[in-house]
Each structure stands twice: as C-alpha cells, then as structure tokens.
C-alpha cells in the first residue's frame, strides 16, 4: 500500500472514530436527558456535541471515501490537501478571521465595561445571545469569504 493510500486510510479511520464517538455521545445525551429530566440542566448540549462530532466524522468519510481503493485518486487528494497555494489561502483567511474575531471580542469587552458604569445598556438575554452568535458566525463568514476571494485572485 502506498503512502498516499495509507494517508487516506488514516483519514477514514479518524472519520469512523469521530462518527462512532458522536453517535455514542449523542445517544448518551438523549438517554441522560430522558432519565434525569428532573435535574435543572439542559442535557441537549451533550446531544449537540455528539451531533457535531458525528458531523465531523461523516464529512471526513465523504471527503476521502472515493480515494480509499484508488491509488492515483489517493495521491491527488493528498496533494490537494497539502497544496501550498491552498495552505497559503487558508492561512490568510485564518489571519483575517482572527482579527475580526479579536475586534468583536474587544467590542464586547468594551461594551460590558461601559455597561458596568451605566454608560451603555446591559447586554443580556436575547441581545447577549445574538452578540455571541455573531461573534462566532462573523469570523466564520469572513474565513469562508476570504477563501473564496483568494481562490479567484491567487
């Protein structure tokens, strides 16, 4: 078996591990939620984590499945994954997303500081949730948009 096929097999194994872990965690979350419903905790967060892990595993399997028995395809997939231009594009996108994330976090920190003095309204409830969701989503959108932009430019 070539190095490329071994590399693909490693990715597939990782995919299976994530998928299995995700299913187990999601099932555990659902079971705990039903068995201990009287506790004042929301166990859906465990189920959610399980779904996330399973999703990561599934995406790995989908990505590398077609290359598992085809040496040439395994070599191509491996080259595409380690492609220096793509690594540069990802690094640039990560850098931009980092600065946006830093800016949003700093804005939130400043807002909280001013709110403590009564200069700005408190962020609470839905407003806080939407701000935090934005702090996660906006850098992600910047990351994806940056990748798309640089793929066309570079």
């Amino acid at each position: 078996m070539s190095n490329y096929s071994q590399w693909v097999q490693q990715k597939l194994r990782l995919g299976w591990v994530f998928l299995a872990a995700g299913v187990i965690v999601a099932a555990a979350g659902a079971w705990i939620g039903s068995e201990f419903a009287y506790l004042p905790y929301n166990f859906r967060i465990i189920t959610g984590l399980g779904i996330l892990l399973a999703g990561v595993g599934f995406s790995l399997l989908v990505r590398y499945w077609h290359a598992r028995k085809n040496g040439a395809e395994a070599r191509r997939v491996s080259a595409a994954e380690r492609d220096e231009r793509m690594l540069l594009i990802r690094a640039r996108a990560g850098n931009r997303a980092f600065w946006v994330s830093l800016g949003l976090t700093y804005t939130g920190l400043m807002w909280a500081s001013f709110a403590a003095n009564g200069s700005l309204p408190e962020l609470s409830g839905d407003t806080l949730w939407f701000f935090l969701a934005g702090a996660v989503l906006v850098p992600f959108i910047v990351y994806i948009a940056s990748i798309v932009r640089d793929q066309n430019r570079l």
């Binding site: 070599r75 491996s78 080259a79 492609d83 220096e84 231009r85 793509m86």
Partner: peptide
Amino acid sequence: LADQVEVSRQTIIS
C-alpha cells in the same frame, strides 16, 4: 504536471 510535483491542478493554473 500537478501530479508530478504533488500540487493541485489549480496551483498549476495559477
């Protein structure tokens, strides 16, 4: 060419 130098075809195009 991309296969021989182990990069993507898109890199060769660029």
